[in-house]
Design a protein around this nucleic acid. Structure first.
Lengths: 79, 79
DNA sequence: TTGTTTAATGCCATATATGGCAACATTGAA
DNA sequence: TTCAATGTTGCCATATATGGCATTAAACAA
């Protein structure tokens, strides 16, 4: 399969975050609230829709809030 | 174990990149050259030393260059 | 209908990741 | 010694992630 472009990677990871969030019955506001420290709900929406290129630390904080490891959050081998 | 702070996470991931790079016998210049597109060697040094908070796409490109999955690159369960 | 919840989006300001280059120190080979 | 290779750091400019807020729209309930 071809190289994953930046925007495609963002979309895949964003869709994965959304799927994991919905599986837990969280709204975007819920998720932002569970994330350690400051995290704007606007950012949840942007990340889930793949509009931005998230940082390591934010991915880590999202994984924490979803109670999953960073490695599992970024396991996109099924995509 | 306590929450991982931002700078600690950066250091752990940076050390992991360095370890994987050295296992492959690459210099920082080699690694930067193997990364798809533009990637400055200065950035390799900064990321390995944990001074910056890398983005998803750059972590993906580094994983590609190291011929490892993104998920494996970020598997820090041993740290 | 009206009101609420949820999510997306536009805008702006700020913080910071990165590119790029120069300077420097260290190491080891010639 | 001199030279090259390697890595770090400081600096600056640019790109972009994020915070924060307002607006909009859809879905649904009262």
């Amino acid at each position: 399969m071809p190289r994953l472009e930046k925007s495609d990677l963002q979309k895949i990871v964003g869709a994965r975050i959304q799927k994991l969030r919905e599986e837990r019955g969280f709204t975007q506001v819920d998720l932002a609230g569970k994330i350690e420290g400051v995290f704007d709900t606007t950012n949840v929406s942007r990340l889930e829709s793949g509009r931005t290129n998230p940082t390591l630390y934010n991915l880590h904080r999202i994984a924490e809030a979803l109670e999953i490891s960073l490695s599992e959050l970024l396991d996109i081998s099924e995509e």
